[in-house]
């Protein structure tokens, strides 16, 4: 990647949680840049702090110390209202448990987000991108887990977000459907050029990334640039 521009620039980010009477140090002085258009995988065991990092990037949480820049906006200074606007305008989320609205069909779940976006794509187009063009009018309860997750991806990208943040997107899926979800993510990354960060504890997924960021105990322990990216269908776990 030539002269890539940093979408996120974070510096010295530390996050403490108070869990009952115990203070948990989830992140401990993390420095990281995420670049435009890259597909990054954040790899780490559970409890390593990777979800906390993703939440801070996505504006769901603020660091205890350190600074988070989205281009030149300092997110660590944002209040709740500004964070909501930031999420609304720039971030697409995909969660482990899809979090679809059960009372809305596939198309409507996607349209729900399209309606509050400034320059969205057509909801049906987003669903076509994840190969669900034929399931537009199904309710979540009528779809498999993999299909639900692809709707969630379509919902995340319909607003043409600058970044797509995925928290264990295949965590609840079997390998076959998991691979289809990963294909969808890769397709989005390649066709739309959306900066994509996927967190997982599944090391197999790392080989399809541009860059692998390993996290352990609240610190980044390794950054690895993949010279060749594997195709999702060649993955196995």
């Amino acid at each position: 990647m030539k002269n890539p521009k940093a979408v996120f620039h974070i510096h010295g980010v530390t996050k403490f949680y108070q869990v009952g009477e115990v203070e948990v140090r989830a992140l401990n002085g993390v420095d990281l840049d995420l670049f435009e258009g890259e597909f990054a995988v954040l790899l780490g065991p559970s409890g390593s702090g990777k979800s906390t990092l993703l939440n801070i990037l996505g504006g769901l949480d603020v660091p205890t110390a350190g600074e988070v820049f989205y281009f030149d906006h300092n997110l660590s200074r944002y209040d709740d209202k500004e964070l909501t606007r930031f999420r609304r305008e720039h971030v697409g989320f995909v969660f482990q448990f899809y979090n679809l609205i059960p009372s809305l069909t596939a198309l409507e779940n996607v349209a729900l987000v399209a309606e509050i976006a400034e320059n969205p794509m057509e909801p049906a187009e987003a669903l076509n991108l994840v190969d669900l063009g034929d399931r537009l009018h199904h309710f979540p309860a009528q779809l498999s887990g993999g299909e639900q997750q692809r709707i969630a991806i379509a919902r995340a990208i319909v607003k043409r977000p600058d970044v797509l943040l995925c928290d264990e997107p295949t965590g609840a899926l079997d390998i076959t459907t998991g691979i289809r979800v990963l294909e969808a993510l890769q397709q989005v990354n390649e066709q739309l050029g959306t900066t994509t960060a996927v967190i997982t504890h599944n090391a197999a997924i790392a080989s399809m990334a541009d860059r692998v960021i390993r996290i352990s105990s609240g610190r980044i322990i390794d950054l690895q640039q993949n010279l060749t990216k594997a195709s999702p269908k060649d993955l196995s776990w």
Partner: peptide, 16 residues
Amino acid sequence: GHEMASLRVLGFTEQE
């Protein structure tokens, strides 16, 4: 609550 929180994460305001 789950649904509402999901919507908040997706960028919906409290008002919405």
